[in-house]
């Protein structure tokens, strides 16, 4: 299921959002083509989360106008893993699938759910499954596969409290990918992780995105994270997209690459950060 880069996956047009009379998003326009990985940077309080929540349809009661269009399957990864502590890992992963009841319930309701699966409403799941049916067993099979993809095979029956922070975030990644989303929204998903785990998660996310090819909107504070992961980096400034940068770096992106440093400088400038001179030459071969 190749993505069609010509098609728009998500769009915000003339988006205005405000809180208590203060305008946060001020006529923002953003288009995300199918399969594109977009990183969203911006100063703290610039409205990154506000924009993401607008895409996710989570801004009930927020004042504003404008239009948001998203595909039918959207997933969200939160900064906290947000696993339900009373459901085992696999039950958490299949939460959003039609057949994804708890183990006991799922078996009982197999027949009933078979006819009207909602998660299968998209065209063509991974196994070429036709629209419609997704039995509880299928749901759990897919959940297991998704867990294996994030390297957590064998932990299906663990309680969330028994996992480390990084593992919990991997489960939440599996949960968001198991529905084969066309748009993946992530709000600082690695913000709470340590630097090493973060690097691992970057690799994992890249691999997963290459395989599933959803359009991605990733909110981050971290300029390097944005350059390493994204096809395109946009900077939110004064309620609109200030800088819109297509990252054109081949292969594995290394901070030692002079082009990488160029992007970094551009983005930091757009964010209004002046780097201390010493850092400029860091890592550059003499």
């Amino acid at each position: 299921m190749a993505a069609d880069p010509g098609r728009v996956s998500a769009r915000a047009s003339a988006l205005i959002r405000g809180f208590g009379g203060r305008t946060v998003l001020d006529g923002l326009d953003l288009e995300i083509p199918d399969g594109q990985f977009v990183a969203l940077l911006g100063r703290s309080g610039s409205g990154k989360s506000t924009l993401l929540r607008a895409f996710a349809g989570l801004d009930f009661g927020v004042a504003g106008s404008g239009e948001v269009a998203v595909p039918d399957r959207v997933s969200v990864v939160f900064q906290d893993s947000r696993l339900l502590p009373w459901r085992r890992v696999l039950d958490n992963v299949v939460l959003g699938l039609a057949g994804g009841g708890t183990a006991r319930l799922a078996r009982r309701s197999t027949a009933r759910l078979g006819g009207r699966g909602t998660a299968g409403r998209g065209t063509g799941g991974p196994g070429g499954r036709s629209a419609g049916g997704l039995t509880a067993r299928d749901a759990r099979e897919r959940g297991r596969a998704a867990l294996a993809e994030v390297g957590l095979a064998g932990r299906e029956r663990a309680w969330p409290a028994e996992l480390s922070g990084g593992e919990q975030q991997r489960v939440s990644l599996a949960r968001s990918l198991v529905t084969e989303p066309r748009l993946l929204l992530a709000d600082e998903p690695f913000g709470a992780l340590d630097a090493l785990t973060r690097i691992r998660m970057h690799g994992l996310l890249r691999r997963l995105c290459e395989r599933h090819r959803p359009a991605v909107l990733l909110v981050t504070h971290d300029v390097d994270e944005a350059i390493v992961l994204a096809d395109r980096v946009v900077v939110l400034d004064a309620g609109r997209i200030g800088l819109d940068l297509t990252v054109d770096l081949p292969g594995r992106r290394s901070p030692a690459d002079p082009h990488y440093l160029e992007y970094r400088g551009l983005l930091l400038d757009a964010l209004g950060v002046r780097e201390p001179g010493a850092k400029e030459s860091e890592g550059v071969p003499a």
């Binding site: 996710a56 349809g57 989570l58 959207v74 997933s75 969200v76 939160f78 906290d80 947000r82 339900l84 009373w86 459901r87 939460l95 959003g96 009841g101 708890t102 319930l105 909602t118 949960r175 529905t179």
Partner: peptide, 26 residues
């Protein structure tokens, strides 16, 4: 936060009650 999660993964009202509200209230 759990309400938000349920909205995002598209739980029906019944499943939201069965799988989120009631276990959370136990």
């Amino acid at each position: 936060r759990y309400v938000e999660l349920a909205e995002v993964v598209g739980l029906s009202r019944w499943r939201f009650v069965r799988q989120v509200v009631i276990p959370g209230a136990l």
